[in-house]
Computed example of a mutant assay.
Amino acid sequence: MVDRVSWVPEGVNVDLPSSARIYDYLLGGGHNFAADRETAEELIRVLPVRDMARLNRAYLRRAVLELVDLGVRQFLDLGSGIPTVGNVHEVAQEADPTCHVVYVDFEPVAITHAELLLADNPNATAILADLRSPETVLAAPETRRMLDFDKPVGLLAVGVLQFIPDEDDPWAVLRRYRDALSSGSYLALSHFTPDRMPEAMAAGAGVFKNTAEPITPRTAEQVLRMMDGFDVIEPGLVMTPEWRPESPDEVGDDPGRANLYAVVGRKR
Rank of each mutant, 00 (worst) to 15 (best):
S182W: 03
S133G: 12
I127D: 07
C99H: 06
W171L: 13
P122K: 04
R176L: 10
D130N: 13
D150T: 08
D168V: 14
I164L: 12
G184A: 08
M146F: 04
T143G: 02
T193D: 04
A157Y: 10
E142Q: 15
D168P: 08
T143Q: 03
Y177W: 11
H191K: 02
D120T: 15
D130W: 06
H113T: 09
V137P: 03
A180I: 03
S133Q: 15
P141E: 12
V153N: 01
S185N: 02
Y103A: 00
L189W: 07
L181N: 04
D150C: 01
N121Y: 05
L189Y: 06
L147D: 00
Y177D: 02
R178K: 11
R144Q: 10
Q162C: 06
S185G: 06
A129H: 04
H113W: 15
V153D: 00
D120K: 13
P108S: 07
D166Q: 14
D150E: 12
A119C: 07
R176K: 14
A172E: 15
T143D: 03
T125Y: 12
A188P: 01
E107Y: 05
V158P: 07
T112I: 09
C99A: 15
L181H: 09
A124L: 12
E107D: 15
R132Y: 07
A139W: 10
F106P: 01
V101A: 02
L116Y: 14
N121S: 13
R144T: 05
G159Q: 00
T143Y: 10
D168G: 06
Y186D: 01
P194V: 11
R175W: 12
P152C: 00
P122S: 06
A188S: 06
E142S: 13
P134M: 11
N123D: 11
A157R: 05
R175A: 13
R144H: 04
T143E: 03
N121M: 08
E135V: 12
P141H: 10
L131H: 07
D169T: 11
L117R: 15
T136K: 14
N123Y: 08
T112M: 15
E167V: 15
L155H: 06
Y103D: 01
A126W: 06
P170Q: 11
F192E: 11
D169Q: 12
R132E: 12
S190A: 04
W171S: 09
V160S: 09
L189A: 02
L161S: 04
G154T: 02
S183V: 10
T112V: 13
I111C: 09
E167T: 14
P108I: 06
A119K: 14
A114M: 11
D105T: 12
L138K: 04
V153S: 01
V137Y: 05
F149M: 00
L147I: 00
D169P: 09
R144W: 05
F163R: 02
L147W: 00
H100A: 01
I111A: 07
F106I: 08
A172I: 14
V158G: 03
H191Q: 10
V104C: 13
